[in-house]
Amino acid sequence: MISGFKDLGVGVGLRPQHYYEFLNQKPKSVSWVEVISENYMDWTNNYKNERPFKVLENVRKNYPVVLHGVSLNIGSVDPVNKAYLNSLKELINKINPAWVSDHLSWSGVFNENFHDLLPLPYTEEVLEHVANKILQVQDILGRRILMENPSTYLQFIQSEMSEVEFLNLLVKKADCGILLDINNVYVSSKNHNFNALDYLKAIPKERVCQIHLAGHTDKGTHLVDTHDAPICDDVWDLYRWSVGHFGNRSVMLERDDNIPEWDEVQNEVLKIAEIRKQENEKSFIQDTSTTIR
């Protein structure tokens, strides 16, 4: 793995529905949490998001925290938003997160935010533009960030390369890491008729610093990345393969909607841990057999 990142083990996306458990019971099944940065950042007029921040501060006493943003807007033609980065940097200074991540997408243009993760054409021009913005962001924040592969529902005719080719070139140019969302790979593979495993094989191993696992909604003709359902069997299989291929990486469960009680979420977290353990044991046995021979 590139420097600045380490394996934190198995984590979960921290949601208000589970604040009670994390503040009072401090579940041991989870060794870190990820939060949506914008939910804890001050607003544009410096209005302080006091209460949510206090919760985060208290959770931080017991768990490493990763900040995951949705409004960095790295893929927009708009220049980097300095006000946004200042607010993010303030949060970083207060919380000292393990790392910071966002998405390979754009969320707005001409200063308007659509609060969504919108798709990019994969061209040399866009590659240069996005890489430069990432370098600027990393310079301002004083740290490497992770870029998450998006789930997409359309592709542009003018793309000059595939998404995974673009991602490969981008992380080298920008010297950033990858937040590998396996569910996103799966969703996009179904929506655009490519092989998810081929995509994963093409990802540079050393750049993968974190993994997301989540559920989606099957609409019959396509999949939608809704994060509102348990992880499906195919995604579990891809994750299992990923542990064998990439080795241990910080991994977490994302559940953003239809959020169940903590016990149900914890069951999926425990399954993630079990898969890691099984794949690690398999690797150990294979390595030992090879050594003995």
């Binding site: 914008e38 950042m41 607003w43 544009t44 209005y47 409004s71 938003n81 946004y84 935010n113 609060h115």
Partner: peptide, 9 residues
């Protein structure tokens, strides 16, 4: 139109 990074705002 939203010009904010937080949907809450």
């Amino acid at each position: 139109p939203s010009t904010y990074w937080s949907l809450g705002e």
